[in-house]
């Protein structure tokens, strides 16, 4: 029935593989999980949707989407999404990238100055920069492949303790090429779509843990999940998880169907980022309420997904920013254009 019509389907074995790889990972450390990254490279998951001639596995975006959801659910400490977007951007500009984990930066503010093949300036909060083999930057009309070793690096993190480092370069030499037309809006969408998929997974992970906990924790002589007040809260969280998952998964399908440059893709990806961001807030709130004090500690695993929900909802465009963008699209469409916009 997946007409429009020959969309690929997700390979269930692949999802199974991803789930078990992430479940076996060491979730407690901080920074890059090098063992997990090695496994991802060995299994071909690290560059799943990158073309084979660019040292990728040549899988479909729908496969990658399913794997990103699992990575989010498993709180994987790897730049899987960033590596994918970095590879896409470098390939679009005809630049080579090294092997290993990569990262991506969208320099909208023009913080980087490109002069021939030297670059200067400061890039703030670059994901995973300290562990990346290269940073692929979209800045103005250029794509730059930068070696972090040529930069001064100040470590920072997001609220989930994931690396978000500040890089300063002063006349560093880098590979530079012209960015293709429309790159800025398209790569903002790639980044937002990846983040939405990770969010959908993290929301699911937080719900899974909360449902499990509600079945185990006993008060008043019975599991707290037997109380209707707790059940109703978890049902609300489940609805948010369902909505976020459907939005992110559907947006990936629209991008596969129409291409990331299509007007339909913009509404789809923006909706997915808004919906997963809003779900993040509600799911994290309920998950913590259901867990009581123990979930409020660094010792408990709940934080692995909830802190990511809080971090990721504000990355690659906050839900507020993307919602404003949708508001603009809707106002441009007008009263009679709203329904055609939503159903396109």
């Amino acid at each position: 029935m997946s007409a429009h019509t020959d969309l690929p389907v997700v390979d269930p074995d692949l999802v199974e593989l991803a789930t078990s790889v992430f479940a076996d990972a060491d979730v407690d450390g901080t920074g890059l999980d090098t063992a997990l990254w090695d496994t991802l490279e060995q299994t071909g998951l690290a560059r799943l949707a990158v073309a084979e001639d660019a040292a990728g596995s040549g899988g479909s975006l729908l496969d990658l989407a399913a794997v990103l959801v699992e990575a989010g659910a498993g709180a994987a400490r790897v730049p899987l999404a960033e590596t994918d977007v970095a590879c896409r951007l470098a390939a679009a500009a005809g630049l080579d990238v090294p092997v290993g984990p990569l990262t991506f930066a969208l320099d909208r503010a023009g913080a980087l100055t490109v002069d021939g093949d030297t670059v200067s300036g400061t890039l703030a909060r670059v994901p995973w920069a300290r562990s990346a083999a290269a940073v692929v930057v979209l800045t103005g009309g250029s794509v730059v492949v930068l070696d972090p070793a040529t930069a001064t690096l100040v470590e920072g993190t997001n609220v989930a303790e994931e690396p978000r480092d500040t890089l300063t370069v002063d006349g560093a030499s880098a590979a530079v090429a012209a960015a293709p037309d429309g790159a800025e809006s398209e790569f903002a969408l790639w980044a937002a779509l990846s983040r939405a998929l990770l969010l959908a997974g993290a929301a699911r992970g937080a719900l899974t843990r909360s449902v499990g906990y509600a079945g185990e924790r006993e008060q008043f002589g019975r599991p707290i999940g037997r109380f209707q007040a707790v059940q109703q809260q978890l049902a609300l969280a489940a609805a948010e998880v369902a909505a976020g998952g459907a939005a992110a998964g559907s947006a990936a399908r629209v991008v596969v169907r129409d291409g990331v440059g299509a007007p339909t893709a913009e509404l789809a990806v923006a909706s997915a980022k808004v919906r997963t961001g809003e779900a993040a807030t509600e799911v994290a709130r309920i998950a913590h309420q259901v867990h009581g004090a123990i979930g409020f500690t660094r010792e408990h695993d709940l934080r692995l997904t909830t802190t990511r929900l809080w971090a990721w909802r504000d990355e690659d465009g906050t839900d507020g920013e993307w919602a404003t963008r949708i508001g603009d699209l809707v106002l441009a469409a007008g009263a009679d254009g709203l329904w055609p916009l939503v159903t396109a």
Partner: peptide
């Protein structure tokens, strides 16, 4: 319409888009 209004409108339409997909 200020940014807050456009955001509220956009959030509603994001919900609509997602609900329809579900």
């Amino acid at each position: 319409l200020g940014a807050a209004g456009r955001r509220q409108l956009g959030s509603l339409v994001a919900r609509l888009w997602s609900l329809r997909r579900m």
